[in-house]
Design a protein around this nucleic acid. Structure first.
Lengths: 101, 101
DNA sequence: TCATTTCGTAAGCCATGGCTTACGTATAGC
DNA sequence: GCTATACGTAAGCCATGGCTTACGAAATGA
């Protein structure tokens, strides 16, 4: 569940497209594959990677499998960049103080 | 400068390690390569990708090249996840209201 | 001018991974 | 039990890309 996996998961364009489709709300594999330039198994494989990375969750609904955004995983990525942002500002501040001296 | 390139840039573990090293402040290529398990040219190639993605900036200092975090690029990624976060909450809220009806 | 330092680039190797087709599996309906 | 639906998985193909070594280029110092 480390953020490393999340980066690699979101790196592939097609996989990121699948992920972004879920932003509108939960959907089945077939619904997600519809209109995409790749096959349904390809979408299924991408969903597995996203799920293993903790970015999406899966629930059964009859013969369908409904995938949805995992908000916990999303929050982890948001926090990662927030920390990065804070650190970058601190480093910048230190460099200014050092050049002032 | 789209965020697509930034994801792919941060996907490779070694390249992300280079990027995270810059969090402590600007550094030369040689300094960044020191202590890393890959060669200096490898680090140089990674820096080129990061620069093309708008994640780092480069300045000349004598015979050295100093790389630093590009805060604008970082901000773009932070905003991306902030928007995503907001959208995900909205979608979740809508799904609750729908199930209430 | 010549040597040294620091770095980018070219060429090539090889593992990774994204995609396809084919097939197996579980649920729902009759 | 049989069929259809919706999906995951296996096998295999092939482009992508990360790494190495070798080399070239630009700035510094003597």
């Amino acid at each position: 569940m480390a953020y490393e996996m999340k980066f690699e998961a979101l790196a592939a364009p097609t996989r990121r497209a699948v992920y972004e489709k879920l932003r509108a709300g939960p959907a089945s594999v077939g619904a997600l594959a519809e209109g995409m330039p790749v096959s349904r198994p390809a979408v299924s494989q991408h969903l597995k990677v996203l799920k293993d990375a903790g970015l999406v969750s899966e629930t059964r609904q009859g013969v369908k499998r409904i995938y949805a955004l995992d908000r916990g995983g999303l929050e982890e990525l948001r926090d990662y960049f927030d920390r990065f942002w804070t650190d970058a500002l601190d480093a910048y501040q230190r460099s200014l103080e050092k050049s002032d001296a």
